[in-house]
């Protein structure tokens, strides 16, 4: 298990290195001179040249890459071309929206999916199972941004329970901020929950065929206890794997959903940066999100060992 985890760790690091190379090279081929972009069209060639020198743009490619990569490690992403503030400050400011959003969405998705999966698996082939899986089938096909629009229409425009968009900030108390995040989190969570519910159900059904489940039932253990205590725990490995993969989707999803709700998160930041050609912001956010995915996948690998003691012993 230790060797396995070490291998995963190495792969994670290699992923980050290659990702940084790809991101760096991709932005190298983009036409346009960042120094020229910062100074505007009226700047003289001498001024541009001076700034290029200051920004280190005249150095060879490999040196610039190493410099940039070293910066990434110390969370020094450089300065935004348009805002002229350190990128890390912009990211910190936006992370207080995106991070809670992703966490709430993941929590909601898990809280919906596991009970539905248990419910359907326990009633395999019966009406309840068929109905639950039909709903899940629709949920999988639902574009999350469209679902978001429908939620806005029903809960913000029609019922006026929550704001249709925008974010009041955490300084005005947690409740208004949470209220602004409820609909976006729900929009993100539901399609993911549909996938997770299907995976949970089929993993559980696989486990329910095992001998130890029959033994547990035979000694008189109630079905509910069998499901929660024996079946769910043994079905957790595929469920955790999918949850880890879904985190990546969720991050990408926040980018789209933040645009639906005008939330000032990382997604909005990326889009503004794209339209303003502020590429250093784009590459920083992309690297940050890739790092988040790699870390979450490592956590998932670790959690296998927690749910399955057999894996801990294996070499």
């Amino acid at each position: 298990m230790t060797i396995y985890l070490l291998k995963r760790l190495l792969i994670g690091i290699a992923t980050l290195v290659v990702a940084s190379l790809v991101v760096f090279l991709m932005l190298e081929v983009v036409p346009g001179d960042p120094a020229r972009l910062m100074l505007g069209m009226n700047a003289s060639d001498a001024q541009v040249e001076l700034l290029r020198e200051q920004m280190g743009l005249n150095q060879p490619l490999i040196l610039r890459y190493l410099d940039w990569a070293r910066g990434l490690l110390s969370l020094d992403f450089g300065r935004s071309y348009t805002y002229s503030v350190p990128v890390i400050d912009l990211i910190k400011e936006r992370l207080v929206v995106s991070f809670p959003l992703a966490v709430i969405a993941l929590t909601l998705s898990t809280l919906i999916a596991i009970p539905v999966g248990l419910f359907a698996a326990a009633r395999r082939g019966k009406a309840g199972d068929t109905a639950a899986m039909a709903v899940a089938q629709v949920g999988v096909a639902m574009p999350n941004f469209w679902f978001a629009l429908l939620l806005v229409y029903v809960f913000a425009v029609w019922l006026r329970l929550v704001p249709a968009g925008g974010f009041p900030g955490w300084s005005n108390g947690a409740w208004p901020a949470l209220k602004a995040l409820i609909l976006p989190a729900l929009a993100l969570a539901l399609p993911q929950a549909a996938i997770l519910a299907r995976v949970t159900r089929s993993a559980l059904i696989e486990v329910l065929n095992e001998d130890y489940i029959r033994t547990a039932r035979a000694k008189g253990m109630p079905m509910r206890a069998v499901l929660w205590r024996h079946a769910l725990r043994n079905a957790m490995i595929p469920v955790l794997t999918i949850m880890g993969l879904q985190f990546a989707f969720l991050l990408a999803g926040t980018i789209i959903i933040e645009n639906v709700f005008y939330l000032p998160g990382l997604g909005r930041l990326v889009f503004q940066a794209i339209t303003q050609r502020d590429l250093i912001v784009v590459e920083s956010v992309v690297m940050l999100l890739v790092a988040a995915v790699v870390i979450v996948n490592l956590i998932v690998d670790l959690s296998y060992a927690v749910v399955d003691p057999r894996l801990r012993a294996r070499q």
Partner: peptide
């Protein structure tokens, strides 16, 4: 393959179209 899977596909699509 593992490497490409670590990139959220939509995020990379956004970056490709942005660039």
């Amino acid at each position: 393959n593992d490497l490409v899977f670590a990139f959220p596909a939509l995020l990379s699509a956004i970056m490709i179209t942005a660039v």
